[in-house]
């Protein structure tokens, strides 16, 4: 049930007929070379600070695409604005680096226009939980088949160190010199209650663990939120690598059952000063696009629009 249909690129000599079933309903193109690290790497290089968690997240996304052998040409990665939102430029797939906070609606439009694509969204915590908060809650309840990775360093990097929606109360920054008063956003409990069907948290310095979460998230049919803790080596002097080492533990080591929603919520609410990473919650619910009869067949982008007959519609105006 959790197998995601791997999407056939539209070009394979002009038809979708080249796909062969492999397993779990996975489809790959016969005439396509295997996806490799080299193939996913464009000439553009990241310009992040040394020690930034974005490097590891980028590396892990690419590794996951290789592991799952996902066709780059039928994959689109969406981001907003922020340090980590430059990620699409560093992966050779289709990409869209849109406006601050608006990546989810752009991704939604693309997915509905071509539901045979693999859609991945990469945003920061300010982008995803702050300015894009409205889109986030509504995208979660719609359950599109997309994977949303949130690079959560609990601070604004690109705009130079202001507090973020996930910064802890009391966080001092240029915009909160007396310390943040707001209660931070809890993305995990928010996602569980708003209808996300795959809710996980990883850590940028636990790459194997993160890769498993990403791979399962991409395979999951529905909206997958993967919040990824990461240090900001320049602006976050609290949540450092040492701090994370002291505070994180793995859910799977604690006998957690991701099918248990209330348990997942209680884990999301925290465990003293310990923070769990891993898969909090997963459920199977029909996706938005599967619930639309218009999308039962070929994607919208494949429909012939050369001379649509609107006569029956005009008859109603007689």
């Amino acid at each position: 049930m959790d197998g995601k249909e791997f999407k056939v690129p539209m070009n394979g000599n002009g038809s979708n007929g080249n796909g062969v079933e492999v397993s779990h309903g996975l489809k790959v193109l016969q005439d396509r070379k295997k996806t490799t690290m080299a193939g996913l790497t464009p000439k553009e290089l990241p310009t992040w600070c040394g020690g930034c968690g974005d490097f590891n997240i980028l590396f892990t996304i690419k590794n996951t695409l290789v592991e799952l052998d996902i066709d780059p040409a039928s994959t689109a990665i969406f981001s907003g604005i922020g340090c980590g939102s430059k990620t699409p430029h560093f992966i050779k797939t289709y990409g869209f680096e849109g406006l601050h906070g608006r990546s989810l609606p752009v991704a939604t439009g693309t997915l509905l226009a071509n539901h045979h694509l693999n859609v991945i969204v990469v945003t920061g915590d300010g982008d995803g939980y702050g300015i894009g908060g409205n889109h986030l809650i509504h995208t979660m309840r719609r359950n599109f088949n997309m994977t949303h990775i949130i690079q959560n360093n609990e601070v604004y990097g690109l705009t130079k160190g202001q507090y973020s929606p996930t910064s802890p109360a009391g966080f001092r920054s240029p915009s909160t010199p007396q310390g943040a008063i707001d209660t931070p956003v809890n993305p995990i409990s928010l996602a569980i209650t708003m209808g996300a069907t795959y809710v996980a948290r990883g850590y940028a310095y636990e790459v194997k663990h993160l890769q498993k979460l990403l791979a399962d998230g991409i395979r999951h049919k529905g909206y997958a939120l993967i919040d990824v803790f990461q240090p900001c080596s320049t602006y976050n002097k609290i949540n450092t690598i040492a701090w994370y080492k002291e505070h994180l533990y793995k859910l799977e080591d604690s006998g957690h059952d991701p099918a248990d929603k209330m348990l997942a919520l209680s884990k999301a609410m925290g465990d003293g000063d310990k923070l769990p990473i891993g898969l909090f919650y997963r459920e199977n619910r029909p996706t938005y696009e599967d619930s639309m009869p218009q999308l039962n067949g070929v994607p919208l982008v494949k429909k012939d629009i050369s001379d649509i007959d609107i006569t029956p519609m005009l008859q109603r105006f007689k």
């Binding site: 689109a76 969406f78 869209f96 849109g98 406006l99 608006r102 609606p105 752009v106 991704a107 939604t108 439009g109 693309t110 997915l111 509905l112 226009a113 071509n114 694509l117 919208l300 982008v301």
Partner: peptide, 10 residues
Amino acid sequence: NMAIGASFAG
């Protein structure tokens, strides 16, 4: 933004 995404996809 959705309209832009859909158009980006063709």
